[in-house]
Design a protein around this nucleic acid. Structure first.
Lengths: 347, 347
DNA sequence: CTTAGCAATCGCATGTGTAGAGTGCTAATT
DNA sequence: AATTAGCACTCTACACATGCGATTGCTAAG
């Protein structure tokens, strides 16, 4: 990659900013006036030709100005972008939106809405994977009918999960209560990870008569806690329809593919998963994501945490031409605020 | 409304059917061949002119054929439509899709998906209002932190609802268990309606020392069961993006308004509510719904039941030009199948 | 290295012409 | 009285031409 000079950088920055603001190809004349450099359009044309050669800008056609390419955007956000830190008054307002919520699921939904409303793009958030460090509060067994038992799992943060399992024989309410008591006495207050481990190791132990209820409890608990399916992440999307306002996504075909990706969720989940590991904001510009449906779109993501552990990812999707200098810090802040709100749930 | 003759009716029917099938305005020549009547195009033109005068068809422009108006569609579905009853093999397939599901919420989602997949339109379903005749199974109180208690409500059909409430003082786990026991001993097995009534009437009774726990339980139960907000219906939409394939909805503006209606939900909920009372399939053609967002769209709905009581509505949304003769019976069948599946949940 | 000048290119809007589809009307036919 | 053939008319869709404006690349001068 040939180093580009300070002037070329400056002009690239000016061009991208202008294009993001106006949505029109930017010509040499405009740039000459806009940039503030004392240069004639002709000189600027030379520089632009260089940038085009490097694949950072391109002309839609001969007599149009230039628009950034994906690589151009990439250089822009990596090395030229000046992010505006958010006003602390704003931050407090957003925090307020998130703090008044007891229900963890609802909290995530609020965060997604907030992302969409503030950026006017589509908000994304993965339901967090069951945090293995969260403590188990209690397990309940409720007999629904012969051989069908409803298992209710409550964690320290107030999240309730439930699932119906089928048993080989009918259990009386008393048996179920007793089984739950045994189980809770042993495991309540322990992190889910520890409970799981215990469930796996206790698998083989002999069943003494005295422990019959405990065996039952362990068995039912296993079928809920160790079920892989429960761990599959899910995705929530908010404000998709806002994307229809962008003229660059005006093509119905493209829009259809994008919206399909929102319902299918699989590809987006993979994408969001990729940004789980590294902390901080991650950007996928256009085809960098590798998914055709996201052609012409950028995704800005950030992982969020609960009690110091990364448990999910949030972000926004919008056209490649989006105001990165505002979106990036906002996604960052939202992830932090949500992490704070989630972590205070268990207290 | 002047009675239209048998021939006019026949031609209207042919015209609508042809238009639904092809999506193009239908001319007199086409209709002469299609209809099988031994009539010349000129004669048909005369009839079409009459239909136009009555407001049942219209010309997009001078040299195009005719297209049904909303009133035309209305006459068509009310008096001319010949619905094809579904094959029983098909019905069994659909039933199969719905029967293997223990979780009530998931069941509704499956129904919505089924609607969308089979009709290739957008599927709608209201989450059912809490069925007041379903029996309460049990109530659990789980202390989350000082002064925050998680209340878990389990009904006979295996549905779990939960809510965090704030108390004035901290309760020990033992107190909470005791309170729940009192409550469940008294109310478990009773229909929710009865429980609610009891909660309201017992409000005023004096609190004897012996009953302190019961008072606590009643108080908490009230705050969950009598909360109006819980009763607000919610709406699920599936396969919205399929609507983007219809050329008549190709206008992005229109599409945007429609998708906004899907997220706002309010208007659609009102519409679906209207069809709660009467049994059987209801149709809203174009502006009949009264909502601008549904311009050019029809909604086909049917109420569904649980244990003999209407608890919600399902249906589809699509362009006015939809294959009613298939959609109507399918919506009807889906409502019946779902009703059956829901009713067998409690057993 | 920068700039002015200039021909060249292209999109876009506008206008024109033509073919095709379908209509309404009138007069002839049954 | 109902039906039909004939015909002028209207409108769209499409193809093609034209002019305008914007912007470029190139060249030669500063």
């Amino acid at each position: 990659m040939p180093e580009l000079g300070a002037r070329a950088e400056f002009l690239l920055k000016a061009l991208v900013e202008r294009y993001i603001a106006e949505g029109q190809p930017v010509g040499s004349r405009t740039l000459a006036k806009e940039a503030g450099l004392e240069l004639s359009p002709a000189t600027i044309r030379n520089v632009l030709a260089d940038l085009e050669e490097m694949g950072l800008v391109r002309s839609p056609h001969t007599s149009a100005g230039r628009v950034p390419t994906e690589r151009g955007y990439r250089i822009f956000v990596d090395t030229l972008l000046t992010v505006r830190p958010l006003q602390s008054a704003q931050i407090r307002r957003y925090e307020h939106e998130l703090s008044h919520e007891d229900n963890p699921k609802q909290l995530l939904e609020n965060a997604s809405h907030l992302l969409s409303e503030v950026t006017q793009l589509a908000g994304l958030i993965t339901l967090r994977r069951r945090n293995q460090s969260v403590a188990l509060r209690q397990l309940d067994f409720v007999g629904l009918s012969a051989e069908r038992v409803l298992v209710i799992l409550v964690t320290q943060d107030g999240e309730v999960q439930n699932r119906v399992i089928h048993t080989e024989r009918q259990y009386s309410p008393a048996e179920l209560v007793q089984a739950a008591n045994y189980f809770n006495e042993t495991f309540s207050g322990l992190p889910l990870a520890d409970v799981k481990r215990a469930l796996l190791t206790e698998m083989q132990k002999t069943s003494e008569e005295m422990q019959r209820m405990m065996q039952l409890a362990l068995d039912m608990a296993r079928r809920v806690l160790l079920d892989e399916k429960q761990d599959i992440d899910d995705l929530m999307v908010s404000g998709e329809s806002k994307l229809m306002d962008f003229p660059e996504l005006g093509d119905i075909q493209k829009l259809r593919r994008l919206f399909d990706a929102f319902t299918k969720k699989r590809d987006l989940l993979h994408l969001l998963e990729r940004s789980l590991r590294a902390g901080g904001v991650k950007l996928f510009i256009g085809s960098e994501s590798g998914y055709e449906a996201l052609e012409g779109c950028s995704v800005v993501t950030a992982p969020y945490m609960q009690d110091g552990r990364v448990v999910g990812t949030l972000g926004v999707v919008g056209p490649t031409r989006m105001p990165y200098e505002q979106v990036i810090p906002f996604v960052d802040v939202t992830a932090r605020l949500l992490s704070g709100a989630l972590s205070s749930l268990g207290r």
